[in-house]
Design a protein around this nucleic acid. Structure first.
Lengths: 343, 343
DNA sequence: TTCGCCATTGTAACCGGTTACGTAACAAAT
DNA sequence: ATTTGTTACGTAACCGGTTACAATGGCGAA
């Protein structure tokens, strides 16, 4: 593998000149530059970005640390980040904390010297711990996480408000007894959604202790919830799952028990996964532009890298949008296969 | 930010000793090591991986270059790669060629000096071009791409065989006139699937020029195909879309036209996206374990990095599995109940 | 002609680690 | 006591670029 010195020797110039010629700096005669470029071609020289970033103290790379790499949620975030990063010629170094606190520390430490900034999503981590791991000197933007005292910029989804809105919508459609299928207890998003639900029930319907069934964001727990609902004879005319995944299970479970949706009971989810619109009936849900979560965070990071000082005050909150579909009785498209009504 | 020399000074030893102590090499007295470690703690020293990899000539990072970052396909690949990479303490540097040839070259070049090996997926690239871009010295494994003459190891999906199998299954179910909705013309996967279809039709049904409608892997093109099918009065009792996405559109389009699936016409897809089993009726398709594509490739790369020499001969071909569901009339679950069962 | 100025080019010191090699101290062997 | 071996540690040369600063040389001005 040819190095800059090889190129310089081949072109009969010094490394400094070679470097300047290659990087298009001024102060280089046309013929000299040509000679260097010829050598570059001949030796097939490709600059060694590692060495380059060492002296430049700039890596043109941002580290992205996620709790997991599973599912659409993360792929959308990454896509959003990449979109913006790519425009600025930045690369993405992926770190995966695999759910463990210890790995989180390792992942962050491993980024030192390889990235100019960090995008971190630490869903189940205490802020104090995070503070220990994070390097104060390394620009960092948090994903979907308000570090509170840490004064780090972040971008998050307003889960509370989303849940509030959905609950409000269900009540507006005539539901009286709404059940919430909660997400994992330790999960912030889940807790915020639950709070939104509870508050809406209290404020709008005047219900003090609305029914809440446990869940863990998985499809299976949605099915479980359906069973509890039916077998437990829980009176309910609407079920609001903390995410779409569970709503899918819920619908399946209800169907299994012979309940019709939305006839007997309305169902709503949260996230608007692609599957949602394809269910039959299609699933009403709160739409979150996950990719924007990533791109917005990346933009903030770029601003910091450009010299701006951003704190928690510059946080961006994305508000989910209500998408009313079939499971809440608002499906425009009836049953397609029914009559022979051609279009 | 503390450097190794700071640590050494603080501990009253030389940089060499500090380095050895930190890296747990032998040749260091317990007290000396303790002193160094104390200094590390005190100064909050974190090794600079950039510098480290420069002298070590080892980055513990693999570059992953994908044509795009959109959709489940890529997120699954990345997840598969990460799974294996993580076990070996490797990091992932993401490169995105954004569909352009020029960017591909740039993406590959940018990897020089930052990675120990490359995982590249260049769907629409001519092998000769690829050869120009790729650095012979950098271990590389191709994803879903047989570079032919290049003698690079690769892991791919047997699209031809998958399509053949599906066509065979449709014919076995009694279909006589099967239509294929093709993918993008320049896409290898799409072409292989089409070949598999054509060959199966010829060999099994003795049909010479089976009907093929154009498509581009998008849901919209599936809808288009359905319109062509219906309006064109194309006689067909089965439609085999080159991917699930188009199959979804196809089904929607057929429903719109009042055709029932699988009553009037059977439908099949390819890929087994999560949505497939949730459609109503559920979609028959060829299941591909995309994550294995990534993990297998990563494993091969690791072997190369460990010193083995792998060529095109060590390629791995993943065979898709037939998943018969409702759209080909083989839905076990008449009642929607089974939709909830975990698979 | 001589001097000074400026643009071009070269020398060498970094960046922050790793590690080959050398040195010193001490134990065991001769 | 001298030699040899072993171990712990230090010095300095890298890795492959960038860049401050010095050197060179061409050219116009005095």
């Amino acid at each position: 593998m040819a190095t800059l010195r090889d190129v310089a020797r081949e072109a009969g110039v010094s490394v400094a000149t070679a470097s300047r010629a290659i990087n298009g700096l001024g102060n280089v005669t046309a013929p000299t530059r040509a000679a260097v470029m010829a050598a570059v071609k001949k030796l097939n020289f490709v600059p060694h970005s590692g060495a380059r970033s060492l002296t430049r103290r700039k890596t043109d790379t941002v580290g992205v640390i996620l709790p997991d790499l599973f599912g659409e949620f993360f792929s959308e975030i990454i896509r959003g980040i990449d979109l913006v990063a790519h425009e600025s010629g930045m690369h993405l170094l992926l770190g995966n904390m695999h759910g463990s606190t210890h790995e989180t520390a390792a992942a962050i430490a491993a980024m030192r010297g390889r990235v100019d900034g960090l995008l971190v999503m630490p869903p189940d981590l205490k802020p104090e711990l995070l503070a220990d791991y994070l390097d104060a000197a390394l620009p960092t933007v948090l994903l979907n996480y308000d570090a509170g005292s840490l004064d780090l910029p972040f971008v998050a989804v307003d889960n509370y408000r989303g849940a509030y809105t959905m609950t409000e919508a269900l009540l507006a459609r005539g539901a009286r007894q709404v059940v919430h299928i909660a997400g994992p207890k330790h999960n912030r998003d889940a807790r915020d959604r639950q709070r939104g639900f509870v508050d809406a029930m209290a404020k709008i319907a005047g219900v003090r202790n609305p029914a809440i069934l446990p869940g863990d964001f998985s499809e299976g727990s949605g099915i479980q919830a359906a069973r509890l609902l039916v077998q437990g004879q829980l009176p309910a005319d609407a079920a609001f799952a903390a995410n779409d995944q569970m709503a899918v299970g819920l619908i399946a479970g209800l169907a299994e028990a012979g309940k019709s949706v939305p006839g007997d009971i309305m169902v709503a989810g949260f996230d608007d996964i692609p599957l949602a619109r394809h269910l039959n009936p299609s699933l009403s849900t709160m739409q979150v532009h996950i990719d924007r979560l990533g791109s917005t965070a990346m933009m903030m990071l770029l601003r910091i890298l450009r010299g701006e000082t951003l704190g928690a005050a510059s946080a961006t909150i994305l508000t989910p949008a209500l998408i009313a579909r079939g499971t809440t009785g608002r499906d425009m498209a009836q049953k397609p296969a029914a009559a022979g009504a051609h279009e």
